Deep mutational scan, measured.
Amino acid sequence: AITFRFEGQEKAKKFYEKLMRQNLEATIHIHGDEVHVTVH
């Protein structure tokens, strides 16, 4: 698994949606202002 870190939720959401379109499995974790997107 690879984890990407984002400042702010907007960028993270766009990235997450892009992964979903590519049929990749990903989970999102929100830590205050920092958002972690883990790709499995």
Rank of each mutant, 00 (worst) to 15 (best):
I28F: 07
E10N: 05
R21M: 11
F15R: 01
Y16D: 00
G32Q: 06
K18Q: 11
Q9K: 10
V35A: 04
A26H: 03
V35N: 01
Y16F: 11
A26T: 04
K11H: 10
D33G: 08
R21K: 11
I28W: 08
Q22N: 09
Q9W: 15
A26G: 03
F15S: 00
E25S: 14
Q22C: 13
L19G: 00
K18C: 15
D33T: 12
I28M: 10
Q9E: 14
V35L: 04
R5I: 15
V39A: 04
G8D: 15
H29C: 10
A26V: 14
Q22I: 09
H36S: 08
E17D: 11
D33P: 06
V35E: 01
E25N: 15
Q9Y: 15
E25A: 14
I30R: 07
K18W: 15
D33A: 10
M20G: 03
R21Y: 06
G8W: 06
H31V: 14
A12M: 03
T3K: 06
T27A: 05
M20A: 05
I30N: 05
E25P: 13
K18T: 10
E17I: 10
H29K: 08
K18N: 09
T3S: 05
L24D: 02
I30Q: 08
E17R: 10
L19P: 00
E34H: 12
V39K: 03
A12K: 00
H31Q: 11
K13I: 14
K14A: 13
T27Y: 13
E34K: 07
E34Y: 13
K18D: 08
M20S: 04
H36F: 15
K13C: 14
R5Q: 05
K13H: 10
A1L: 12
L19R: 01
L24Y: 12
E25T: 14
E17H: 08
E10S: 07
G32I: 05
V37P: 00
A12F: 04
F6T: 02
K11W: 09
E25C: 13
H36I: 14
H40F: 14
L24M: 10
I28L: 10
E10I: 07
V39H: 03
F4V: 04
E34P: 01
V35S: 02
L24I: 15
T38A: 04
G8K: 09
H31W: 11
I28E: 00
K13W: 15
K11Q: 15
I30W: 12
K18P: 00
F15Q: 01
A12R: 00
K14C: 07
V37I: 10
E34S: 08
G32F: 06
A1E: 10
K11S: 13
E7R: 14
F15P: 00
A12Q: 01
A12L: 03
H31K: 08
Q9G: 07
H36R: 08
K13D: 05
E25L: 14
F15Y: 04
D33M: 10
H36E: 05
L24S: 03
M20F: 04
N23L: 07
N23Q: 08
E25Y: 15
F4T: 02
K11T: 12
E34N: 05
G8E: 14
E17S: 06
E7F: 14
H36G: 02
F6R: 01
I2Q: 06
V39R: 03
V39N: 02
V39E: 02
H36Y: 15
T3D: 02
I28P: 00
F4E: 01
E25H: 15
H40D: 04
Y16L: 11
F6H: 01
Y16Q: 03
R21T: 07
L19W: 03
K14I: 12
G32W: 05
E34L: 09
L24T: 05
N23V: 04
T27Q: 06
E10W: 08
T38V: 13
I2K: 07
A1K: 12
A12G: 04
D33N: 14
I30F: 11
E7G: 09
H40Y: 14
T38W: 09
I30H: 07
T38C: 04
F15V: 02
R21G: 06
M20Q: 07
R5Y: 12
V35Q: 01
Y16E: 00
H31I: 13
Q22Y: 14
R21V: 05
F15M: 03
A12Y: 03
V35T: 05
A1R: 13
D33F: 11
Y16I: 10
E7W: 14
H31G: 03
Q22K: 10
F4P: 00
A26P: 04
L24H: 05
E10Y: 08
E10F: 07
E7L: 14
I28T: 01
E34D: 05
I28V: 06
H31D: 10
H31Y: 13
E17F: 09
H29T: 14
A1W: 15
F15E: 01
R21F: 07
K11E: 15
A26M: 07
K14P: 03
N23S: 07
R5T: 10
D33W: 08
Y16K: 03
I28R: 00
V37W: 02
L19V: 07
Y16H: 04
T38P: 01
Y16P: 00
E7T: 14
V37A: 00
H31S: 10
H40R: 11
L19N: 00
F6G: 02
V39Q: 03
F4H: 03
E17G: 04
A1F: 14
T3G: 02
L19C: 11
Q22R: 11
T3Q: 04
V35G: 02
R5H: 09
R5V: 15
D33L: 10
E7N: 13
G32R: 06
F4G: 02
Y16V: 09
G32M: 06
V35I: 11
N23G: 15
Y16T: 03
K14R: 12
T38S: 05
D33C: 08
N23W: 08
R21L: 11
A12V: 02
T3A: 04
A1Q: 11
T3R: 07
I28Y: 08
T3E: 04
T27W: 10
A1H: 13
K11P: 12
F15K: 00
K14S: 09
H29N: 07
M20T: 06
V35H: 03
T3Y: 07
T38H: 13
A1C: 15
E25F: 15
E25G: 08
I28G: 01
V35P: 00
K18I: 11
Q9I: 15
Q9M: 15
T38I: 14
M20I: 13
K13G: 05
L24F: 12
M20Y: 04
K14L: 13
H29D: 06
H40E: 05
K14V: 10
N23I: 04
A26L: 08
K13F: 14
R21N: 06
A12I: 03
K11A: 15
G8F: 10
K18S: 12
K14F: 09
L24Q: 05
G8Q: 12
H40W: 15
K11G: 10
H29I: 12
A1S: 13
T27V: 07
V37K: 00
V37E: 00
T38G: 02
F4R: 02
R21A: 13
F6Y: 02
I30Y: 12
K11L: 13
E25V: 14
D33R: 10
I2Y: 09
T3L: 09
K13P: 00
F15D: 00
F4W: 08
N23E: 05
T38R: 07
G32Y: 05
F6A: 01
L19F: 03
H36W: 15
H29L: 09
H36T: 12
H36L: 13
T3N: 03
H29R: 09
L19Y: 03
V35D: 00
R5S: 07
E25I: 15
H40K: 11
V39T: 04
F4Y: 14
F15T: 01
R21H: 05
E34I: 12
H31R: 09
T27H: 07
H29Q: 10
V35W: 15
E10L: 08
F4S: 02
L24K: 07
E10V: 07
E10H: 06
E17V: 08
G8A: 12
F6V: 02
E7P: 09
A1N: 11
L24R: 08
N23P: 03
T38N: 04
A12N: 01
T27M: 05
A26D: 01
H31L: 11
H40G: 07
I30K: 06
E7V: 13
H29P: 00
Y16A: 05
V37L: 04
F6D: 01
D33K: 11
L24N: 03
T38Q: 06
M20D: 02
H40V: 09
